[in-house]
């Protein structure tokens, strides 16, 4: 018993030390810039007011929520329907298509960077929400993961529904989706976080500041500061906190789903 308590304290301490950069970020974001450079501490919300007001982070936040939200919903819809087909139907070309989807996991994404830029430029979709969303929709990992999950659901359930005269679409919606809810939730989180943190694609596809996501806004704010030791660090830390916080809160709520989603996919 005593050994366990000791372990708990040691674990907690180790965890806090490991996360100290994040904790410092949050603390520093409530510090006034004058006090910061004078070496003192005084609590202020000014950095947040400045980030949200003068530096447009409210807009970036809404952009990030919109883009990540649409990518998640659209990506899930595509992945679930395709996974259902791959798991339950035997059709010519099915295995080949599944292999092509899984292979995207191994294909380095940078090779698509220039061509996708050209495709969207030709379609007039650079500097638009659609330009951010469309290339991110197809998610090979989610399709693979959900297919494995659906294969684990007894076929008898589908067959009973078909017996009652259900159509494939109804089997998908009424049988498969409800049973797969935990897996769908895990993949939803996985897609949302990936898109929230996406950097290189919005960096390439955006010029218009009004469309910046948090990642681009934060990088820009940091890069535009004059020199490393003249940076308004408390302001930058407030912007960093805004960028991290939604995922952090979500993480604390649903850590188990997320970890399960990631490990199940990997250990398969």
């Amino acid at each position: 018993m005593r050994r366990d308590t000791l372990w708990s304290w040691a674990a907690l301490a180790a965890g806090l030390i490991f996360l100290s950069p994040v904790l410092y970020t949050v603390v520093l974001s409530f510090q006034s810039v004058e006090a910061y450079y004078a070496g003192g501490f005084s609590f202020t919300l000014k950095n947040y007011a400045q980030a949200f007001g003068q530096y447009d982070f409210l807009r970036y936040l809404l952009n990030s929520i919109l883009v990540s939200g649409v990518v998640t919903l659209g990506g899930l819809a595509m992945a679930v329907t395709a996974a259902f087909a791959f798991a339950r139907f035997d059709f010519p070309g099915g295995n080949l298509m599944f292999a092509a989807v899984v292979a995207t996991l191994m294909i380095p994404s940078h090779i698509t960077l220039i061509p996708n830029y050209l495709t969207l430029a030709r379609a007039g979709l650079l500097d638009s929400y659609a330009g951010l969303i469309l290339p991110a929709l197809a998610n090979g990992f989610a399709a693979f993961f959900l297919r494995q999950y659906i294969r684990g659901i007894p076929r008898a359930l589908d067959e009973a529904a078909y017996m009652d005269g259900a159509r494939p679409r109804q089997v998908l919606w009424r049988v498969i989706v409800p049973i797969s809810r935990p897996a769908i939730l895990s993949m939803g989180l996985y897609i949302f976080i990936g898109e929230w943190n996406n950097y290189i694609w919005p960096l390439v596809a955006l010029n218009d500041r009004d469309l910046y996501t948090l990642q681009i806004g934060l990088a820009q704010l940091y890069k535009e500061n004059p020199g490393e030791d003249l940076v308004n660090w408390p302001l930058v830390m407030a912007a960093s906190t805004i960028t991290i916080l939604p995922i952090l809160l979500g993480f604390l709520l649903v850590e188990r789903h997320l970890v399960r989603g990631i490990t199940m996919g990997a250990v398969k």
């Binding site: 180790a14 996360l19 950069p21 950097y199 940091y222 930058v236 830390m237």
Partner: peptide, 24 residues
């Protein structure tokens, strides 16, 4: 608990982490 703490950075924004470590 420790697993959670160690896992957290991998879902956190790389840009924010890079900015914070630039400060460190």
């Amino acid at each position: 608990l420790l697993r959670g703490a160690l896992f957290l950075p991998s879902v956190t924004s790389t840009v924010a982490i890079a900015v914070v470590f630039s400060w460190l």
